[in-house]
Simulated assay, not measured.
Amino acid sequence: MTQDTVLANATLVLTDETVRGSLRLSGGEIAAIDSGATVPPGAVNCEGDFVAPGLVELHTDNLERHIQPRPGVDWPHAAAILAHDAELAGCGITTVFDAMRVGSIPGGKARYDAYARGLASELWALRETGGLRISHFLHLRAEVCSETLPEEMAAFGPEDRVGIVSLMDHTPGQRQFRDLEKLKGYVMGKQGLSEREFEEHVDRLAALQARHGAAHEARAVAEARRYGAVLASHDDTTAAHVAVSAGHGARLAEFPTTEEAAAACRRHDIAVMMGAPNLIRGGSHSGNVAAASLAEARLLDILSSDYVPAALLLAAVRLGALWGDMARGMATVTAAPARAVGLGDRGRLAPGQRADVIRFALDGDTPRLGGVWCRGVRVA
C-alpha cells in the first residue's frame, strides 16, 4: 500500500501542451489532474518545476556495461543489475527495455560468448523478490552475423517479457560500419586486435553473413512473432533496406543511418528512433546522419539513451527547444516509445495511467531532476 502523493503548483507536461496544475498519485496510478497553482495541505509544492511522465527507454546497452565494465571483466551479475536499475531510476527512466545480444561467435581472439539467457533469468529473479525500482522488459538484439543465433533465441519464450527483437547485421562495409576505418578504430581499440587480426575478423564476419545471414534473419523474425514482441530494424541505410524491414513487419527503426532511410520509414509507417548522444554531440560517432537533421526534417519520432542513460532527458529538453515545444520534445521519450511497443498504460499524464512520473527544473538548458516516482513510489 502506498500513500497518496499530490504534486502541486507544477508545470505539467501533457501530450500536446504544458499547463500549470497538480497531479494526484494514488494506488499506483494517476488519480486526478487539476489546473491552477493552488497547493493543498500536505501536497508537494513543485514551485513551477516540470512534472512529466516517466521516461520510456527502448534501447540501452547500459546493463552490458555494468556486467562488463572493462574488457575481460565479468562483474557479479546481481550487483550489476541493481546498479544499472538504480542508475536508470536516477536518470528519470521508469520503463526500460534492456538490450541483450543473442547470437555469438565462440572462437577466436575477437570471440564473444552467449550470455543473454542466464542474465535474463538473474534479472527476473531480482524482479520476483522486489529488488528492482523500475519496470524492466527485454530487447533481444538478434545478431544475424553469428554462429549460434537459433539456439540462443529458442531459449526464450513469451513469459520472458521480450518486448523488442531487433535485426542486427554488423557485417563490415555496410550499414553502421560502411566506413571500415571507423570500424577498425572501434574494434581494435575495444578488443586489442592487431591489423592482421582485424582483417581476419572482417573476413570471418563476411563469411558468416554469407553462410547464415538470410536464415538467421528469417529465424529472428519468426521468434519475434512467437514471443509477441515488436520487430525493429537496425541501421537501415537505403530505401531498399527499409522495404525489406517493412516486409518483415518491422514497426520500429533503430538508428537509420541516412535521411533517405528515415524518409522511407515514414512512408512505411515505421517509427524512427535515434540516439540521444547523437543529438547532444551534434552527430553520430560512426559518421552517419545527425539526429538533429532528422528532427529538423520532421523524421524523428523517438529518442533512446543508447550508451549514456543521462542523455535521454537532456536530449528531450533540447529537442523541445529546437522545436519550440517542450511537450513535443518530451513525447519522444514518453508517449511515442510507449506507443511504439504497445504499452498503453504509461507515457502520458492522464487519469488511469501508471503513476510513473518525474519532476525536473532547468538550469539554463540542462534538466535537474527533483524526484522520480514509479507506480507512485518515489525511487529517486
Rank of each mutant, 00 (worst) to 15 (best):
T171H: 00
R133N: 09
V96S: 04
H170S: 05
R204V: 07
A315I: 07
R204F: 07
L167I: 15
G21I: 11
E64N: 00
D235I: 07
E199W: 10
A291C: 05
G28T: 13
D74F: 08
V162M: 08
R117A: 14
A271T: 03
G228K: 10
S104V: 08
G92P: 01
F198M: 10
G107I: 05
M153E: 00
G163R: 09
M274L: 13
E254R: 02
G249L: 10
R127M: 07
A246F: 01
A125S: 13
D301V: 11
V221T: 13
F137P: 00
H248K: 08
N62H: 12
G189K: 02
V39E: 00
L58A: 06
R111F: 09
H212S: 04
A10G: 11
D160S: 02
D160A: 09
A240N: 07
A261C: 10
A321M: 13
I270S: 00
A110V: 03
R111D: 05
A253L: 03
V377Q: 13
L252V: 11
R161E: 15
A327Q: 14
T95I: 00
F198W: 13
G157Y: 09
D269K: 15
G324H: 11
L7I: 11
G189F: 12
E29C: 12
G320W: 01
R211W: 03
A79C: 06
R127E: 14
G107N: 13
S194I: 03
I358N: 04
G376T: 06
V317H: 04
C46W: 08
I81R: 06
P172C: 04
R117W: 06
C374W: 02
G28A: 09
D16F: 11
G185W: 01
K190I: 02
V372T: 08
Y307H: 08
L252T: 12
D269A: 14
G27W: 10
R368T: 14
S135D: 14
V162E: 06
T334V: 05
T257H: 02
A271W: 05
Q174D: 09
V308L: 14
S146R: 04
N62F: 09
S104H: 12
G185D: 05
L140I: 05
Q68H: 15
R24E: 08
E223W: 12
E147Y: 02
D269H: 15
G371R: 07
D235T: 03
A355H: 08
D365V: 11
R298G: 03
S121H: 11
G329V: 06
S284Q: 06
G103V: 01
V308T: 12
A220D: 10
H77F: 15
R266W: 05
T2N: 03
L126T: 09
D203Y: 00
R133S: 08
A83P: 11
H77T: 15
A214I: 14
R346E: 03
I33W: 00
R219Y: 14
L303M: 02
D16W: 01
L82N: 02
A239I: 01
A206C: 09
Q191N: 12
P277Y: 09
P256D: 07
V357G: 02
G48H: 07
G347F: 06
F137H: 15
A239S: 14
A295K: 00
R348Q: 13
A291D: 02
L149C: 07
L63P: 00
G131M: 08
L313E: 06
D325C: 00
H212Y: 12
A295V: 15
M153Q: 10
V165A: 05
L313P: 04
G173V: 09
I302Q: 01
S121T: 11
H136V: 01
H77G: 11
